[in-house]
Amino acid sequence: MRILLWHVHGSWMTAFTQGSHDYVVPVLPDRGPDGVGRARTWSWPGSVVELAPASLREQDFDVVLLQRPHELELVRQWLGREPGGELPAVYLEHNTPDAKPCTQRHFLADRSDIPLVHVTQFNKLFWDNGRAPSTVIEHGVIDPGARYTGELSRAALVVNEPGRRGRIVGADLVDEFLPVAPVDVFGMRARHFTDAHTRAAGVAPDRLVGYSDVETQDQMHTELARRRAYLHLTRWTSLGLALIEAMQLAMPVLALATTEAVAAVPPAAGEISTDVDRLVRRLRSFLAEPELARACGLAARAAALERYGLKRFLADWDVLLDGLTR
């Protein structure tokens, strides 16, 4: 099958493109949001090719996988075809509702010709999907391996743009953990956030460190696994792939019991609660008892491998895609 899709979410795309299909991603000279092309920090197979928009009209595609509302118009402009009509289409919704949880209608709610795929059961429940045929295909993650050493008595979290996103991603909660252990933040503009915060709050620079320049996912995974525990402090989001990856690394997890995290993180993996004090106390115990941390990390890895394995993920997508083209 030949699939057109945009490079929107690098980690999700890395898993999806491990399938048996041919994947075409648009590329623009500036590699902006509508033409990022192939990944540079993830390893993608040769079955993923870049094409400029001007070349797409002459191409044959079996299906287009949409991930942002305006991509419907891009298909019309670049291919001269109507998604869902002349060209089979499926829409992948990565996110939770961002305006009115429980009552926000999805923009496809009044259409029945484009299946709507959510990445978590929580998302499907909280969006008003209307009459759009809706289903859930949970994440799949390429197993990075059990790399956990926990050799550094520090906590780690992965979050993009924590300074801009603030309370949504729990940036305000990081301070709660600093009296117990230093915290390392990985992700886009993480260093900007940590530098600004240490200056404003008078935090010692070595207690809160940002890492925005890790070159590859593989390098980041290795660095994460050296930290004693992984923090998942996001209040309102779809299930972060970084959390699943940390679990597969065999890191013990301290997570807010919000959105889909309550289904993804078993109690044996560490601690999951809306009581931040409980998470802080658990981090203290992990620092004092490295073997306890290691045991929780192994439980986290077993749970993540069972639920978010790549084979199940690709098989679920194949079933849906086959149904679109029959």
Rank of each mutant, 00 (worst) to 15 (best):
H192Q: 13
M251H: 07
L108A: 09
P97F: 05
F313M: 08
E73W: 12
G323Y: 07
P101E: 01
S212G: 10
L5R: 07
D34M: 10
L241A: 06
L254G: 01
S20F: 10
V25S: 01
Y211I: 01
P69K: 01
H106S: 07
P45T: 02
R226C: 02
L152I: 08
T14H: 11
L243M: 14
K124H: 10
E215C: 09
E289D: 15
L321C: 07
F107W: 15
W44C: 03
A171K: 02
W6Q: 10
F61V: 08
V209S: 03
V180D: 07
L310R: 08
S153R: 14
P290W: 08
M13W: 09
D30I: 09
P267W: 07
H70P: 11
V158R: 00
E291Y: 05
R284C: 10
V25Q: 04
E138Y: 09
V24P: 09
P115F: 11
D175L: 08
V262T: 15
L79N: 00
A109H: 09
P205G: 02
A225G: 03
L92G: 05
A146N: 06
R131A: 05
G19V: 14
C296E: 15
M247R: 00
S153N: 13
Q59M: 13
I137H: 08
A229H: 11
L256R: 14
V36A: 14
V280M: 06
H9V: 07
A15S: 15
A299R: 08
P144R: 00
V183Y: 07
L320N: 03
P83D: 00
I142K: 10
L310V: 06
H94G: 10
A303P: 09
G323D: 15
G145D: 04
D277I: 00
P53N: 00
P53M: 00
R189N: 13
P33A: 05
M13V: 03
G130P: 06
T222I: 12
L51G: 05
R81K: 11
D30A: 15
D98W: 13
L249A: 06
P97H: 02
H192Y: 13
V159H: 00
G163M: 12
F177M: 07
R312E: 12
A255D: 01
F107L: 11
R282F: 11
M251N: 08
D275S: 10
A293Q: 10
A181N: 03
D322T: 15
W78H: 08
F193Q: 04
S47W: 12
F177H: 09
L292Q: 14
F16C: 02
N95L: 13
A132E: 04
H70M: 05
L56R: 04
H232A: 12
S43N: 13
V48R: 04
I272K: 01
Q104A: 00
E73D: 15
D213R: 02
A229G: 14
R111Q: 15
Y91V: 07
I168W: 13
L4G: 07
S20H: 13
S134C: 12
D213G: 00
V209W: 05
T325E: 08
A257T: 04
L283N: 05
